[in-house]
Design a protein around this nucleic acid. Structure first.
Lengths: 136, 136
DNA sequence: CTAGCTGCAAATCCTTTGCAAGAAA
DNA sequence: TTTCTTGCAAAGGATTTGCAGCTAG
């Protein structure tokens, strides 16, 4: 009798451990390059980093998004769904408390009949400091 | 006396006209490839397409976003900021009237001091039809 | 005429892949 | 052992760039 839940089994390798460990310490989504820089200390290759990353993304353990400059950003799926505003000038990132879109999404569910499973928001702007600099 | 509004001047070339014309007819953000396919009938080169696109993006006339598969999507900045919900099962896309996050973003500006310039939201869920199928 | 565009081809950046060797279970 | 993973190097796709020739203003 087959389980309807796909059994998630995989080999526990140095590379996968290193990647997961690094991601656990990361507060923000990080690039593959950063992950690689951490992983290469363990002798892990760049393609392995990508392969592990995609493996975990497929398993739903890691969340992947694409930044405006075409770079993939990875984060643990278990991390709370933090949103950030990114400053387009200085690239500072500021975390947002809670999800500002939760209510809007509930309204959307009612309006569309969709059951919303996931959402991903990137918010870009100019931070107070850069606004000040620009006006000087 | 200098205007505080940057004067937007540029040469009116065949390539730029073609790109703008094509974008005016497009309801959704489109890839550079699609734009190129339209523009090449006028003998426009691929690099020119990209160069014009980036030129207009810099001028604020065209909006650029990146899709999850790392492809740039372009749309006229004057087009309303349409969001869509994508069904995770059948990949159907449903347009959302207006921007559900407009109010939330205003609150965010107040809360963070950021001047929000752009935002990008991907909303994923299960559409009514697929929900029904799943429960049968 | 002259600054600003364009075409072409080569380059770059991020990411993926084929294949043989290596390691977990 | 057997299957899954890795390293390496090469390929791939999207986007950018250098440079010389072209063109709108």
């Amino acid at each position: 009798m087959a389980s309807d839940m796909e059994t998630i089994t995989y080999k526990n390798t140095k590379g996968r451990q290193a990647i997961l460990a690094f991601l656990r310490k990361s507060d923000y989504p990080v690039t593959a390059v950063k992950i690689y820089n951490a992983a290469k200390k363990e002798g892990i290759n760049f393609s392995t980093v990508y392969r592990c990353l995609n493996f975990f993304v497929g398993k739903g353990l890691i969340h992947k998004e694409v930044s405006p400059d075409h770079v993939s950003l990875f984060s643990l799926a278990s991390h709370p769904d933090k949103h950030v505003i990114v400053c387009l000038k200085c690239h500072k990132r500021v975390e947002i408390e809670g999800c500002p879109y939760e209510e809007a999404n509930k309204a959307l569910e009612k309006g569309t009949g969709f059951k919303i499973v996931d959402h991903n928001a990137e918010i870009y702007g100019i931070c107070p400091e850069c606004q000040k600099k620009a006006s000087e």
